[in-house]
Simulated assay, not measured.
Amino acid sequence: MWYYEKKLQYPVKVRECNPRLAKFLVEQYGGADGELASALRYLNQRYTIPDKVIGLLNDIGTEEFAHLEMIATMIYKLTKDATPEQLKAAGLGDHYVAHDSALFYNNASGVPFTTAYIQAKGDPIADLYEDIAAEEKARATYQWIIDLSDDPDLNDGLKYLREREIVHSLRFREAVEILKEERDRKKFF
């Protein structure tokens, strides 16, 4: 069921050490609309969704783990040579004291990840609309990080991730239409 190729889904390059950008990226690592929350949401929802879209949730959920790996790599590269003073100046002093350079699932403000981020209503159409919203919020966050970044190498990877969020949103929209047609034919609900 699982095949892991030991390479990133898309190459991650970083021009220079930049803890400030790393702090922003932490939002996509452990925030409410980040990659971990999305992966867990979709892989959880697949158990209560009609067969016609189970594969979609499985595919996108596992891809979100690949995105999480990219974000972790970006954060690592942005902080790998940072001094404690640079981390403190970037607002990562508290993180450094608690975790040194280890990644920890929290958002950019330092709030720890919570399973409250993982939405699942049990109504397939409601869940897919939640998924569309999650993808659109992630797309917006990637754009805002790009807007704050002056690293063209990092931005290349962020643009890739932003585009994948758009694709996922479109796929979920297609799934909603499929399920609405099924509902209207009274095959479920």
Rank of each mutant, 00 (worst) to 15 (best):
M1Q: 15
W2N: 12
Y3C: 06
L8S: 13
Q9R: 14
K13V: 08
V14Y: 01
C17H: 13
N18T: 00
P19Y: 11
R20E: 14
L25K: 01
V26Y: 11
Q28E: 06
Y29H: 15
Y29W: 13
G30V: 02
G31D: 07
G31K: 04
A32R: 15
G34C: 06
E35S: 02
L36T: 03
A37R: 00
A37D: 00
L40T: 10
Y42G: 03
Q45L: 00
Q45C: 00
P50N: 09
V53D: 02
V53A: 07
G55V: 01
L56I: 06
D59C: 06
F65W: 09
F65A: 09
H67C: 03
L68Y: 04
L68W: 04
E69T: 14
Y76L: 08
L78H: 02
L78G: 03
K80M: 13
K80H: 10
T83A: 08
P84W: 01
E85C: 05
Q86E: 11
Q86F: 03
Q86K: 04
K88G: 04
A89M: 11
A89F: 06
A89S: 10
G91M: 05
G93I: 10
H95V: 11
Y96K: 06
A98V: 03
H99F: 14
H99K: 04
S101E: 03
L103M: 12
N107S: 10
P112V: 05
T114S: 15
T115P: 02
Y117S: 04
I125K: 01
I125V: 15
A126I: 09
D127V: 00
L128Y: 05
E130L: 08
D131C: 10
A134T: 01
E135H: 03
K137I: 09
A138G: 12
A140C: 07
I145V: 12
D150E: 14
D150N: 15
D150K: 13
L154K: 09
D156A: 09
G157V: 08
K159Q: 12
E163K: 12
E163F: 08
R164N: 02
I166Q: 08
H168N: 02
F172G: 01
E174M: 09
E174Y: 10
E174T: 12
A175M: 00
K180V: 14
E181G: 08
E181H: 07
E181Q: 12
D184I: 04
R185A: 14
R185D: 12
F189G: 15
